[in-house]
Design a protein around this nucleic acid. Structure first.
Lengths: 215, 215
DNA sequence: TCATCCAGTTAACAACTGTTCTCTCGAATT
DNA sequence: AATTCGAGAGAACAGTTGTTAACTGGATGA
């Protein structure tokens, strides 16, 4: 099934990965729009022109990094949001997932936070697309539980957005807590849990409101 | 009282403002860490070396921009959060305030969104400090209404953070809606109002929960 | 085995960067 | 009226940048 790709292509992919890794390290202390092509090749240990064998431009490399950073996260969303009876347990799982992810891939998280509103348009768009996918996935999970309770499509989208944004905010807070040790990490965990609890609480009473027919 | 400052200092401040304005324009399509000193002076129409008469570095200019973008907003916070009986009216006022601000100063808002997690440390810190001030101000307003209802300090901080982050997210959505006309702007307005409504709803039931004594 | 392919190299280019030192010349101070 | 001050100009510096073209040499496929 998996055709062992030749020495040739294997080497190429290895070098390509070296580009991504080196870029990610350099991007911990600067943003993509100031990252130089020569800077990256120098870090990899390869001639400047070799870059073009793998990427058309720095922006292109950035888009590849977005896929690496967010692409593998999609399978996690469903199980985390759904698999739990208690909503309190669901919150715990979600925060734990972010916790682990930030610990494991801090550079990726930092890159996304930085370039989400950064100066390189194609990268911004790639991130926006991935986040829209997350929102759709969360929305689909939410629909299973609340559609029967009379939730409309707009309301589901609204709540999904709220949750996704909250996840991002939490990830960014964890990131800052990484280099400020002490009980800061714990403090962020508690804050995130309480905020999610409040949002969930609000959603539980959402339908109590006067019917949204005329507003 | 107001000592009319001499021709000399007046000219200097005028040039300094020209630097800030020119930088803000350039920063609409790139991030601060890739903004060149010569690039700015060229846009202003002065010699490169003139830059040093006003700023120590580009990062220094960035910090000045942060003050310009956020400093004047503090007086707005109190009146907006407090002056209203109905919570629905408060939400309307808040969204309206952001709406107007984004329309009036899109470049400033974009700059803050971009550099909040950007590649220049001193600027990140300046933004973080300003946002912390906003959080404190919101918290102080919230305390007036809810402290009597048994809200603890941690809970107030949590809710204030939630509101401030929500304001930022809304501002960023409005910003994206600026260049995508059609009913997009309206859609964002409705989304923002409903999200704030849900959060407010959650906060109204916050104290219904089991006492947070042991958690 | 031999011709083809292609990841990576080498060399060179014009253009640009931040920073220095020296100078000018009008305002500010005495 | 004479002196000091300081915003901005000008020229020059050593480095850096992205991109081009022509190349090498080992893997690939006929």
């Amino acid at each position: 099934m998996s055709h062992t790709l030749g020495i040739r292509q294997a080497q190429k992919q290895k070098t390509r990965q070296a580009f991504l890794d080196a870029a990610l390290v350099l991007l911990e202390e600067q943003s993509l729009s100031s990252l130089g092509l020569r800077e990256v090749t120098r870090a990899v240990g390869v001639a400047p022109t070799a870059f073009y064998r793998h990427f058309r431009s720095i922006a292109d490399l950035g888009v590849a990094l977005v896929d690496e950073a967010l692409g593998s996260l999609h399978p996690m969303v469903g199980p985390t949001v759904s698999a739990a009876n208690d909503s309190e347990e669901r919150i715990g799982r979600a925060v734990e997932l972010i916790d682990q992810h930030v610990r494991a891939f801090p550079a990726h998280v930092r890159f996304i936070a930085r370039e989400r509103h950064g100066g390189v348009q194609p990268v911004r768009e790639a991130i926006r697309d991935q986040l829209a996918r997350f929102t759709e996935e969360v929305k689909a999970e939410l629909a299973l539980n609340r559609e029967s309770e009379g939730w409309g499509d707009d309301d589901l989208t609204m709540l999904a957005h709220l949750y996704v944004d909250q996840m991002l905010i939490t990830a960014q807070l964890f990131l800052e807590a990484l280099e400020a040790p002490q009980g800061e990490w714990e403090r962020v965990t508690r804050l995130a849990v309480r905020q999610l609890r409040l949002i969930t609480l609000g959603s539980r009473h959402w339908m109590d409101q006067e019917a949204p027919a005329e507003r």
